[in-house]
C-alpha cells in the first residue's frame, strides 16, 4: 500500500531524512516511532505530498506521489501534528468545507459528515463552533476531517499527543475501528509502548534513519535477543528460583514481590520447555506470562546505539 524508497530530505546541509526505506501493507497499522527531531513529521509531510523530497520515491497504492500528487491526495488522509481550526465555523460546516475542497457533492458530503461525526463521537457537537471544542475533541474532529474523502491510507502525525489517557483510549478505539474498515494507517509517536498495542508493525526512526522495522515482538527479540516472562507461584518461591537458574536458556531471574521476572533467550519452544520443567518439578505455577518487554528501555537502547556509533 505504501512503499518508501531511498527517501532523502535535506534542509541545506542538514540531513533530516536519510535514505529511508519502508513498506506498509494494506490494512495494517504501522507505528512510526522516534525521538524529537528524528524526522517523522518530515517523512510524513513528504508522503502527504506537502513537501518535496531531495530524492527518493514514495508510492501509495501504485501511484507515485511525486509524479501524480493530485491523484495521490485522493488516497491519502493526512493529520498534521499541529493544526488549527477556523474560528468562525461550526463543526458540521468545518467538515462540509473540507468535503467541498475535496470536490464532494453537497448531499453526499453532508451524509459522510454525519457518519464521521458518529464515528469520532462528536455528533452532539455538530452545531458547536469549532474553536469552542476541547483539544481532544479538535483532534477527533481533525481525524474525521482527514477521512472525509474516504482515503485508503491515513497518515496520522502524533494523533494522541497532549491527550489524557481516556482520550487516548478513545483514539485507539477509533483507529481499531478504522482498521476494521480496511484502512491502512501510518501513525507516529515518540512513545513506543503507547502505540505498540495497536500496531501490526513498527519502525523506529532516529536521526532520519530507520533503525529497525518489524512487528513489536520481532523488534524486541532482535534488539535484545531475549524474552521476558513473569511467573507467579503459589508457594516454594526459593525452589522455583533455583530451578529456573539451572535452565540453560535463562539469563536472569529477578524476584519482585510474589512474581518472578525471568529473562531468557530463545524461541517460544524454549519457553514451553521452561514451563514444563517447572510444572514437572511440582512448582505450583499459577501464572506464566510472556511480557511485551520493556519497550521504553528498548527504545532508548535503539536510539542511543546510533549516538555511540557516531
Amino acid at each position: 500500500m505504501l512503499v518508501v524508497r531511498d527517501l532523502v530530505k535535506k534542509y541545506g546541509d542538514f540531513l533530516a531524512v536519510d535514505h529511508l526505506n519502508m513498506e506498509v501493507e494494506r490494512g495494517q497499522i504501522f507505528g512510526f516511532i522516534g525521538p524529537n527531531g528524528a524526522g517523522k513529521t518530515t517523512t510524513m509531510k513528504i508522503i502527504a505530498t506537502l513537501l518535496a523530497p531531495t530524492s527518493g520515491r514514495v508510492v501509495v497504492d501504485g501511484i507515485d506521489v511525486f509524479k501524480d500528487p493530485i491523484k495521490a491526495r485522493e488516497k491519502i488522509g493526512y493529520m498534521p501534528d499541529f493544526f488549527g481550526v477556523y474560528d468562525n465555523l461550526k463543526v458540521k460546516e468545518y467538515l462540509d468545507f473540507y468535503g467541498s475542497a475535496y470536490g464532494i457533492e453537497y448531499r453526499e458530503r453532508r451524509k459522510i459528515a454525519e457518519d464521521l461525526l458518529e464515528l469520532v463521537d462528536l455528533s452532539d457537537k455538530k452545531d458547536a463552533y469549532v474553536d469552542t471544542l476541547s483539544r481532544g475533541m479538535k483532534q477527533r474532529l481533525c481525524l474525521a476531517r482527514c477521512l472525509i474523502h474516504n482515503p485508503e491510507l491515513l497518515i496520522l502525525d502524533e494523533p494522541a499527543s497532549g491527550m489524557d489517557p481516556r482520550a487516548r483510549a478513545e483514539i485507539k478505539a477509533i483507529l481499531k475501528e478504522l482498521k476494521r474498515m480496511g484502512k491502512t494507517i501510518l501513525i507516529s509517536s515518540h512513545i513506543l509502548p503507547e502505540v505498540a498495542e495497536i500496531c501490526d508493525s513498527v519502525g523506529i526512526i532516529d536521526r532520519g534513519k530507520l533503525v529497525v522495522q518489524g512487528s513489536v515482538e520481532q523488534i524486541i527479540q532482535r534488539m535484545t535477543g531475549r524474552t521476558v516472562v513473569r511467573i507467579r507461584v503459589l508457594r516454594d518461591m526459593d525452589r522455583a528460583i533455583s530451578l529456573l537458574k539451572e535452565q540453560p536458556m535463562v539469563t536472569s531471574v529477578i524476584q519482585e514481590d510474589q512474581e518472578l521476572e525471568v529473562a531468557c533467550k530463545g524461541s517460544d519452544e524454549d519457553l514451553w520447555q521452561l514451563l514444563r520443567a517447572l510444572v514437572s518439578s511440582d512448582v505450583p505455577v499459577v501464572s506464566f506470562r510472556k511480557m511485551e518487554g520493556n519497550l521504553e528501555q528498548i527504545f532508548m537502547e535503539v536510539t542511543s546505539d546510533e549516538e555511540m556509533a557516531l
Binding site: 509531510k45 502527504a48 505530498t49 506537502l50 493530485i70 491526495r73 485522493e74 491519502i76 493526512y78 498534521p80 493544526f83 488549527g84 481550526v85 477556523y86 473540507y98 475542497a101 475535496y102 470536490g103 476531517r145 474523502h149
Partner: peptide
Amino acid sequence: TLDLLLCTK
C-alpha cells in the same frame, strides 16, 4: 490550516 487546505483537491 494551510497544509490542510493544500492537501485537498
